[in-house]
Computed example of a mutant assay.
Amino acid sequence: MKTCLVVDDSKVIRKVARHILEGLKFAVEEAGDGREALDRCNAGTPPDVILLDWNMPVMSGMEFLRALGQSAIRQRPKVVFCTTENGVAHIRAAIDAGADEYVMKPFDRETLESKLQIVGVA
C-alpha cells in the first residue's frame, strides 16, 4: 500500500485529503506544519508522496521543501504542492524548490488522483 503524508495547518483540509486518499487506497499520515513533516520523514520510512501546503506556521511548505532536499533521506518522496497560491511565479518557485506537481485548493478526488498519476504514485 502506498503512503501519503498530508502536511497542512488546516485540520479541515487534512480531513478532506485523508478521505480522498483513503478512497484511493493510500495509508495516510498527517502533519500540521513543515517541521513536524520533516521530523516524520527523518524518523522512519518516508512516505511515497507528500501533499504539501504552502502557507503554514513554524515551517512553510517552501522551507520544508528546501530542508527535505538537504536531508539525508535515501528515498525522496514525491511532493505535490497543494495551495491557494496560483500565480505562475509561485508555481515555478515550487517546482524549482523540488516539488514534483502542483494542485489548487479546493481540489476534488479526480483532480488529486490525476496529479498522483502524473508523479507516478496512483
Rank of each mutant, 00 (worst) to 15 (best):
L52P: 13
I95W: 12
A72N: 14
L116K: 10
V79F: 07
L116D: 00
R40C: 01
S10R: 03
M56E: 15
G34P: 10
D33W: 07
S60V: 02
G44Y: 13
P46N: 13
A27T: 05
V7D: 06
V7S: 06
E22D: 12
D108Q: 10
V16S: 02
V103G: 04
I95N: 06
I50V: 14
K2V: 00
L5T: 05
M56A: 12
L24P: 00
G87L: 09
F81N: 05
F26W: 12
Q75L: 04
S114F: 07
E29L: 01
H90E: 13
S60T: 14
A43V: 00
K11Y: 01
R74I: 01
K2Q: 06
R74S: 08
A122N: 06
Q70L: 09
V16K: 08
V58S: 05
E101G: 03
K11L: 05
K15P: 00
D53W: 01
A89R: 14
E110L: 09
A122G: 00
R18T: 12
P106E: 15
L51I: 14
D33C: 07
G32T: 06
A89I: 00
C41H: 11
V88G: 00
V16A: 01
G69E: 15
R18N: 13
A89N: 11
D108F: 04
G32S: 15
I95M: 15
A17H: 06
K105P: 02
I20D: 12
L5R: 06
H19V: 04
V103I: 15
V12I: 09
K11D: 12
T83C: 06
A93Y: 02
L24T: 05
R76K: 15
I50Q: 11
K25F: 14
N42C: 02
A27F: 13
E110N: 10
E101S: 12
E63C: 01
D100Q: 08
L21D: 01
L24H: 07
L116F: 06
I73V: 07
E29M: 03
L52G: 11
E29G: 05
C41Q: 12
R74P: 00
P106W: 14
